[in-house]
Design a protein around this nucleic acid. Structure first.
Lengths: 163, 163
DNA sequence: TATTGTTATACTCTATAACTATA
DNA sequence: TATAGTTATAGAGTATAACAATA
């Protein structure tokens, strides 16, 4: 019924092009679902990325966020403006540099980020529910190998790909 | 050195949330590379999707393309206008419905689509080069299982996820 | 009356450039 | 002189609405 089943279910599908197709199709689907979850909470993907970044790396200067999210400083201004207006983050003074402001999560922001993280965990359990442990181990390792193969392609790998 | 390596390389990484993170990170990376390839040829992703759709399913009415690509009919008009202006596709009359036009690949369009397909195959070989056959088989099967798990989530699965 | 495609218009997301205040 | 962030402006991509021709 679903396009993901057509080729991807076949046991003997060791054709690499098919495997890549399946991976790409699945990726698109996962991205879609993630997007939906983020939208449900009233965020845009880039905003969620910003929040996740703050969760993982702690308070940051806008300059750092600009680099981490790979968007312009101007864009960060807008994103932080919106998130601040709704009480998810707040700007504070930089301890030593009076030009800079430090963006951090508010209590409300921390709460929502934790909730989203929890959802993500539950989603992962669901997604891999039918996958036997040993298969999951192989799967993970292959992901690692592919990741390595793909990293060599070009140097634009400083990205923040989570969320 | 690369973020994909951090967690994803670990052999014992059977934590499902970690595996999902790796998968998402890898997806982002693959999408990036694909985007680059498409851009090199002077197309946008949505245009490439349209061309691929024509390759797989043959000539189509704009209405069908609108549904397949999940964009508005108005948007399809613009896409086809641009692709037609550059000689990749052409509009022809519908045999029975004089309102409709049928979009098909030109010879030039067929050639470029085949070339892109070939590139995709070579890329797949490269990506999976270091993955042993049996592991690839397991990997493919897990992709299928996940795909099935993920398809049940919601009914918006009529999409055309290739390219 | 419903449907195919188009003309006209507007919105969302992101970028570049010029500017202010610090460093 | 260089850097952090902002104001002002512009572009790309996509959507909604109203309309024409045809079914």
């Amino acid at each position: 019924m679903n396009s993901l089943h057509n080729v991807c279910g076949a046991k003997g599908a060791v054709d690499r092009a098919d495997a890549l197709d399946c991976l790409l199709a699945l990726s698109a689907r996962l991205a879609e679902i993630m997007e939906a979850g983020i939208t449900e909470r009233g965020f845009r993907r880039i905003q969620a990325s910003l929040l996740m970044r703050l969760r993982r790396a702690g308070p940051a200067m806008q300059r750092e966020l600009s680099a981490a999210l790979r968007v312009t400083p101007r864009h960060v201004t807008g994103l932080v403006d919106a998130l601040e207006a709704d009480g998810w983050v707040c700007r504070g003074p930089h301890p030593t540099d009076r030009r800079a402001s430090v963006v951090s999560l508010t209590e409300q922001g921390k709460a929502v980020v934790l909730a989203m993280d929890d959802e993500r965990r539950k989603w992962a359990e669901q997604v891999f529910a039918e996958v036997p442990g040993p298969d999951l181990a192989v799967f993970s390792e292959v992901l690692g190998v592919i990741g390595a193969a793909v990293s060599d392609s070009d140097p634009a790998t400083q990205q923040d790909s989570t969320t």
